[in-house]
Design a protein around this nucleic acid. Structure first.
Lengths: 118, 118
DNA sequence: GGCGTCGGTTCGAAGTCCAAACCGAGGGAG
DNA sequence: CTCCCTCGGTTTGGACTTCGAACCGACGCC
């Protein structure tokens, strides 16, 4: 992914969003960072449809954010771990969580917590 | 948006992604935080298609992340500003940019800068 | 043999995304 | 007055994604 190829202003944030800025990627990374390393666990934790999850795991591995490791020989089974790049995505998720706690948890929209209320 | 309605694990980060976790929202917020307050400027800065941008601006205003302000009476013209909630999204973008600088700017994938290469 | 788990893949339907054309209100040039 | 431009959108038609659900093969358990 070359920054110059993006349609808008060249910016590393845009490049980051190209890689992990879709509906599921950050949720997947959150789950893996929480210790959910297997397909089924990640699927339960994120709620992503199975095919989407399979595709997303593939692109995240390709992007170098996740590493796929076989944990069972007889029936080929794999689990997913964060690479260093993936690890460093955790602060992004933390920032997102902090924002969500403050603004997205109130019933209704992300309006200021107490406009005229106690 | 109720956390309990989300398919996966209830988590404020998921709620945040519901609101701003699409292709353009964070880019739009970046642009507005850079001082691009008008439709056309935001469109140029993000590279989003016009209809997507119009729809996204609407949902962001509904979500309470942006505020829409008329700046011209005669032909109705509006500009967009960050609310407090929008303002507090800036750290998320900063985190994303930091990550992008480190991992997404290298040509190729987000692999460690020098694994075995010179 | 019959059923369950695990990690996927395949399917058709539904939804979303896109580029490009269109629109209306106004401004400016000729 | 007429023609064309800007601004902020909306509409359109087609491509691309996403979805839930069904299916699959390899294995384990009973």
């Amino acid at each position: 992914m070359d920054l110059a190829d993006l349609p808008g202003r060249p910016c590393p944030a845009a490049a980051a969003l190209e890689l992990v800025g879709d509906r599921w990627s950050l949720l997947v990374i959150r789950e893996v960072s929480f210790g959910a390393h297997r397909f089924t666990r990640i699927q339960e934790g994120t709620g992503a449809p199975r095919d989407r999850l399979a595709a997303r795991l593939k692109t995240l591995v390709d992007a170098g954010v996740l590493r796929r490791e076989r944990y069972c020989e007889a029936p080929e089974r794999y689990e997913y771990h964060l690479t260093d790049a993936g690890q460093e995505l955790v602060p992004v998720i933390r920032a997102l969580r902090a924002w969500g706690e403050r603004w997205a948890c109130t019933p209704g929209q992300a309006v200021t917590p107490a406009p005229g209320a106690p």
